[in-house]
Design a protein around this nucleic acid. Structure first.
Length: 670
DNA sequence: GCAAGGTC
């Protein structure tokens, strides 16, 4: 019989795949790595091997690391720029030695290696590492790759019979990323640390790191800080019309919303008053919906946890990992917001019926209210959206685990129920030469909202009856006055959204970069002061995060005050509470670093997200065969070397920024 | 003492 070695990216996948291929009948053996097991069973992979003896095992992520030789250990010499072309060496990471040994040993007694890593670029690279190690055990081993995008039984069985080759282009793309991050990160970190140390103050003892993700992350924080700081309020004026009918007081809003010219508004307002009567031009009543949320991704989970659960993104991810390792929820690092058609979601809903918080709701779904979830546009081809796998009794979870589990379950149940339904009414009038409108909303069926306290849909109220063509004399009309208000500082949810939109970090690492800029004392968080604005809540769920948010135009003006507080329904899971939102502000050091680079004469500053984006594009180009790893490396390294030389040449700009912000009067907070 | 990526 052919002997086949299968290797997955992580132990959980190896176990799940072994279960499917073997029909649940496999033998388990320990390895020298505590977390990984070898499963053995028989399986028919079809031609050419037919019935085979299979060993299925796993790695735990990447197994190799890239390093500079020992003669580059010292920071002062050789000078940092030498790291751009220093020799580098790949080796098995010290904590992966046992894993590598296991694969090498198993490969020695196998004819075929089948790689079962995640179907993404990093997964392909890990596949390459596995192949290299296996070839040490058996140079001529046949290497194949299984392509699977979820761990449904039928899908896995299918993947086992449609093996493909490992994609060396993707392996190369990741090789390039790893090398560039290493060279650029180390070179600029040493440069910054050594060159700014003589300035004294915090620079004399801190390590000043640079990274292609941490710097743009800091850049977002600094950018918003300046937008708040430099915000100049502008006065605006508007017109408000109020009428009362059937004991209902209706406010009509000006279609023009507001104007920044007092004289103009005064004239328009006077024409309204002179006209005396308003005329109804349009009355509309139509059914409307509030869409249920999309299936849960990692990014969305982190945003929600920071908004509603008083956790940081990192805490949320770490709790989700614990829940995953206990088998309560699915894999927590995913970009996918659509469930595979083949998944039996109703069975998962059924498992939630014993709960005394949402069990009844789950039971209703089982009894016929179940609806297929919406399909988002993202699919990482490796993992399904985050969902509950088994029921976890609250008594077996700690406080934070409980909160995250509740979030995952409620989101899942919301996904599997129906959109909320309502009736919206609209009345439009002409008064003078100006148009005004009023809106009313009546919520008819709450549906998913009943299990999902993170959102609410408040019926503004019912409007009284108006008829098209009728004329009436408004009860009140007044000219209003207001000022534009600055945006708030970045919340963690804002920051995650910006990173997501700009391709900074991955679902698994975004929270780490956010931690990193705080650890380096580039930024810190403060509790939001008691101002009303900038609370977006989760109601903007369906909108994609903008790549950059404008200083103005963020809200609809000062008038609406966005008094979101208390507007949403109170729910058990809403930890948020008054003033509980943390905001990110840069330290004076963080401002100095970003400003220092921004003021140099680069096309693209190191503090902006464009360089990381470019690296992403280059990787894509390698994957699509439009360029090669060697070309990208040569190109990028020479480019960054130029950036480095220029930074050295314009060091005065950077030190000036440090003097200004860290020691000067115009210092930033911190 | 430095990066970012994977995973436990």
């Amino acid at each position: 019989m052919t002997r086949i070695l299968c290797v997955a990216e992580k132990p959980s996948i190896s176990k799940a795949v072994a279960g499917h291929l073997s029909g649940g009948h496999f033998q388990t053996a320990n390895t020298r790595d505590t977390y990984t097991k070898n499963y053995t069973f028989n399986f028919d992979f079809g031609p050419p091997w037919g019935h085979s003896e299979v060993t299925m095992t796993a790695v735990r992520g990447h197994i190799t690391q890239l390093d500079f030789p020992d003669d580059y250990k010292r920071w002062e010499y050789p000078p940092p720029e030498r790291l751009f072309d220093a020799r580098i060496q790949k080796s098995i990471s010290s904590d992966k030695k046992n894993i590598a040994k296991n694969i090498e040993d198993q490969a020695r007694r196998s004819d075929v290696l089948i790689i079962w890593t995640d179907c993404d670029r990093e997964g392909e690279h890990i596949g390459g590492e596995i192949r290299d190690v296996a070839r040490k055990g058996k140079p001529g081993i046949v290497v194949r790759r299984a392509r699977f995008s979820n761990i449904e039984r039928a899908h896995i069985l299918n993947a086992a019979r449609q093996l493909v080759a490992l994609d060396d282009k993707q392996v190369d793309a990741v090789d390039a990323r790893i090398e560039l991050d290493l060279r650029i990160g180390f070179a600029f970190t040493r440069f910054l640390t050594l060159k700014l140390r003589p300035l004294g103050g915090p620079m004399s003892e801190l390590m000043l790191s640079y990274g292609s993700c941490q710097f743009p992350t800091l850049g977002f924080v600094v950018d918003r800080y300046f937008r708040v700081k430099n915000f100049v309020p502008e006065a605006f004026w508007g017109i408000k019309v109020i009428h009362e009918r059937d004991d209902i007081r209706v406010t009509f809003n000006w279609i023009r919303h507001r104007l920044f010219d007092r004289m103009a508004v005064t004239i328009l307002f006077e024409r309204c008053i002179l006209a005396r009567y308003a005329k109804v031009t349009k009355v509309q009543e139509k059914p409307t919906k509030k869409w249920k949320p999309l299936p849960l991704t990692t990014v969305e989970m982190q945003k929600m946890a920071t908004r509603f659960l008083r956790m940081t993104g990192q805490e949320a991810l770490s709790m989700a990992e614990k829940l995953y390792n206990q088998g309560f929820i699915s894999y927590p690092r995913t970009e996918t917001d659509r469930f595979d058609k083949g998944m039996n979601l109703q069975a998962l809903v059924q498992k939630q019926t014993p709960d005394n918080r949402w069990g009844q709701f789950a039971q209703n779904l089982v009894d016929g209210a179940f609806q297929q979830p919406r399909q988002g546009r993202n699919d990482d081809k490796a993992h399904p959206p985050i969902h509950p796998v088994t029921y976890a009794d609250p008594s077996v979870l700690n406080e934070n685990e409980k909160k995250i589990y509740e979030l995952v379950v409620r989101r899942f149940l919301a996904c599997c129920s129906e959109d909320a339904k309502g009736v919206s009414t609209g009345v439009e009038i002409i008064y003078g030469d100006e148009s005004f409108n009023a809106h009313g909303l009546i919520v008819v069926e709450r549906n998913y909202l009943d299990v999902y306290p993170y959102e609410n849909w408040t019926g503004t109220a019912q409007l009284p009856r108006f008829r098209v063509g009728e004329r009436f004399e408004p009860l009140e009309a007044e000219m209003t006055e207001g000022k534009t208000t600055p945006p708030g500082y970045l919340t963690e949810a804002d920051l995650i959204a910006l990173m997501d939109a700009n391709g900074i970090g991955t679902d698994a690492t975004m929270a780490e970069h956010i931690e990193k800029i705080q650890e380096r004392q580039y930024a810190r968080t403060v509790e939001r002061a008691g101002r009303g604005g900038n609370q977006n809540g989760a109601d903007d769920d369906n909108a994609d995060a903008p790549a950059a948010r404008g200083g103005r135009g963020r809200g609809r003006g000062a008038r609406d005050g966005r008094g979101g507080r208390g507007g949403r329904g109170g729910g058990t899971a809403r930890g948020g509470g008054r003033g509980g939102v943390r905001e990110f502000i840069p330290t004076s050091l963080g401002v100095a670093l970003i400003e220092g680079f921004d003021r140099m004469s680069f096309d693209t500053s190191l503090g902006k997200p464009f360089l990381r984006k470019e690296m992403e594009l280059q990787m894509k180009a390698i994957c699509e065969g439009r360029t090669t790893k060697q070309a990208v490396l040569a190109d990028s390294i020479s480019k960054y070397r130029q950036v480095y030389e220029q930074s050295q040449g314009e060091l005065g700009t950077l030190t000036a920024a440090c003097r200004q912000y860290v020691f000067g009067n115009g210092a930033a907070a911190g």
